Amino acid sequence: MNKLFTLLLLTCLMSVSYAQNKNFEAQDNPCKENFVVDPNNPTDHVCHNLIKNNTAGTLKLLWKRFDVLVPAGWEPTVCDNVNCYATFVTSCPEEYVNEILKGKTMLADMHIYDGGIPGKEAEVTLRIFEKEDTTSYINVNYLFNKESVGTKNQQRNISLRMYPNPAQNSFQVDFNTGISKIEILNVVGNKALSYKAETSKSYDISMLEDGIYFVKFITTEDKTLRTVKLIKRSIRS
């Protein structure tokens, strides 16, 4: 009995040490994203996250995705520094290892495509580990719409639509109430643009380089209602 207790204690201590990995850490853990599903406008939502290298050298990081709770019709996908992967890819291929220099970060975004199916919530865990030492890892939790009933009820009253996407020089946002600010982030989470939210207004993005951005809609309570991936794509002759 004493040996069993000692073994269990050591296992718990090892788990804690892995959760508090000194080599790298997540910007947000858990990473939370709440949104309202529009049955007429299926949307891809993203919980943006970064993994920071705390060592004095270069880290080679891989990941494995665990779908703890994903309702039928919803599709989780992972984006890292190398690729944005399809839903069926649940682990990072070794040939696409993320090499993170000292003090730099790795993108660890979790996307959820809602399929236009409302009234659901999701939880996904991303285990991030070193290629050369798989015992050195952290588990990062991603929570989608797992909030209190009061918060959900407030969000259900907000109707939101963003179009076109992809966009060339601008996009438009239609909403009924409750949104105060719109922020546009680049793929590493830095703020590129910020606007006061006004419904049926066109938002200029002509100054941005072509690529992937994330549009964050912030409520009057200073909470993130939804983060939507935006593709900026210019017409080339």
Score class of each variant (00 low, 15 high):
I112H: 03
P76C: 07
P166R: 08
A86P: 00
D133S: 09
T151I: 11
G119W: 08
N40M: 13
A19P: 04
V82H: 02
C31K: 00
I182V: 11
T58V: 15
G57A: 10
V149R: 10
Q172L: 10
M110V: 14
K64I: 11
M162S: 05
N83R: 13
V78W: 03
G73T: 07
D210I: 01
S234W: 01
K120E: 11
Q168S: 13
L10N: 10
T90F: 02
I138P: 02
A108C: 13
N21H: 07
M106S: 05
A86R: 12
L107D: 06
K216A: 12
Y142F: 10
K104I: 04
L160M: 08
T134H: 05
G119D: 10
T6E: 14
K152V: 05
T134F: 03
C47Q: 03
D80A: 00
G116H: 06
G119A: 08
A167G: 04
M207G: 11
Y142W: 01
Y85P: 03
S234A: 14
L9F: 14
Q20F: 13
K104H: 15
V37F: 03
N141Y: 10
E183N: 14
S237Q: 13
E123M: 12
G103V: 03
T43E: 05
I100D: 04
D67C: 02
E130Y: 03
A122Q: 05
S202M: 07
V140T: 07
L50E: 00
I128T: 07
I179R: 00
K191S: 11
R127H: 06
G103E: 06
A86F: 12
V70L: 11
N83S: 13
C47I: 01
T219M: 05
T105E: 13
K191L: 10
N145I: 01
N153G: 03
T87L: 00
R156N: 14
W63S: 02
L208K: 03
S136Y: 00
N139Y: 10
T219S: 13
N54E: 10
G211K: 05
E75R: 14
L143Q: 08
K3M: 09
D114I: 07
T43K: 05
S17D: 11
I112V: 12
E123Q: 12
L69Q: 14
Y137T: 02
I184R: 01
P164A: 04
I138E: 04
V149W: 08
T58K: 15
F24M: 06
N40I: 06
I205L: 04
V70S: 08
S159A: 13
N49S: 00
